[in-house]
Design a protein around this nucleic acid. Structure first.
Lengths: 219, 219
DNA sequence: AATTTTTATTAGACTAATCTAAATACTATA
DNA sequence: TATAGTATTTAGATTAGTCTAATAAAAATT
């Protein structure tokens, strides 16, 4: 049985390694966990003894097979709770993570199974990130930033890059959220600004920075 | 900010003192917390420094004003989560406590406020225990065990004493739960067994022990 | 009232998770 | 390739929460 803290380290290692592809160095993990590099070394040693990570001194760390499953398990719970918070309790995007980071550590397979069922077995969380299944399988969905799609393309907003509170608030204000249908109607040559029609109703202009951070699925 | 463990001690002290009426001795608290008496002494000292309990060496301990509010806060969250688990996720009575004891410690006023609203501001949990309001106010409801009510009385099941898994399972099996309407139709002189009609449909005989542990409200 | 029994507290040690400061290994550059 | 610089690990200390064993206080019993 892992502690909350160990689960959080595992999740951070998994994320920073881009789903286990590369190995993570101590300093970036320390920054992510808001802790001292020395603490990271200590913790990695413990996780290594528990066979949750692959680790060689001075060589960085990565999740092991067991560790990856555990990490995906926590991520699954995190994302399912987010769906609940948004769909049932009307949480705003910027209020989600603080609470979901507590709820994700509740240990009860029955709870998460029933919650999943109650929510209709969602496949994506409110930020458009896919929800791993009970076995840790991830169904990746193609997602492209608006900047990389040609004029004329229509799609559903399935996610955003980054999650700064101010960005999420901006999206809320202009009426863009997960599930919103957008059509790219024009792109200015000079700066890359894009005109998009929101749900077929109003058309607004978004900056290239915003366009880069809104992900559309090819629907 | 109190830790999970501190919150659990506070809750236990509150319960054992019968809502702050008498003071609690170290051994019973140790038993309740499944820990050594020495650990209890240590913890009480800490809680006392934080002004959450009133404590004099060798004289027992009790919740302070601050501590009582904190305890009721945790109890409120516990009971609201139980309502959620039963009403939305179809949990059985005997699966409730393990999960609710984790969920009760989630720190988010917004979460519990929204959850309360989502559930329609319930006043009682699935065991019939009253839910304190945000200020820690408890609306106590008269509850009498079946053994203490005369033949002919009808009422709603609003609670049960004790919560052994086997007892709760028995109740489930015979079709008794919170909200069930019972009428006392007969009481055997020789052993105190009671015949009760369940929701006006079938009549069953229950043992005096069972009768003593089912609480009816005078509805 | 003195003594025994019970109950409660302290003393000292242990683990998990953290820290700062010091030491060590790796990397890059001259 | 020697050295300067950066990244990482170890050493040693700290805090929360726990334990066992020893001590002290209170309660009960003779």
């Amino acid at each position: 049985m892992l502690s909350f803290v160990e689960e959080n380290y595992l999740k951070a290692i998994y994320h920073l390694s881009e789903a286990g592809k590369r190995s993570v160095n101590t300093n970036s993990l320390a920054e992510e966990m808001k802790t001292a590099p020395a603490s990271v070394s200590d913790m990695i040693k413990r996780l290594s003894e528990k066979k949750m990570v692959d680790y060689q001194k001075y060589r960085g760390v990565n999740v092991s097979g067991k560790g990856k499953i555990k990490a995906l398990h926590v991520i699954r719970q995190h994302r399912i709770w987010k769906v609940f918070l948004v769909e049932k309790l009307n949480f705003q995007w910027d209020q989600l993570d603080e609470v979901a980071e507590q709820l994700e550590h509740i240990k009860s397979p029955l709870l998460i199974q029933r919650l999943d069922e109650f929510l209709g077995f969602p496949k994506f969380d409110p930020h458009g990130d896919p929800i791993p299944d009970e076995n840790g399988q991830l169904i990746e969905k193609r997602k492209d930033p608006i900047t990389q799609l040609p004029v004329g393309t229509a799609g559903i907003v399935v996610g955003v890059n980054g999650s700064s509170a101010s960005f999420l608030k901006y999206l809320d204000k202009v009426g863009i959220s997960i599930g919103t249908r957008l059509q790219i109607v024009d792109r200015m040559e000079f700066d890359g600004s894009v005109d998009v029609t929101i749900d077929g109703k109003k058309t607004i202009t978004i900056s290239p920075t915003v366009a880069e951070n809104i992900l559309l699925s090819e629907a």
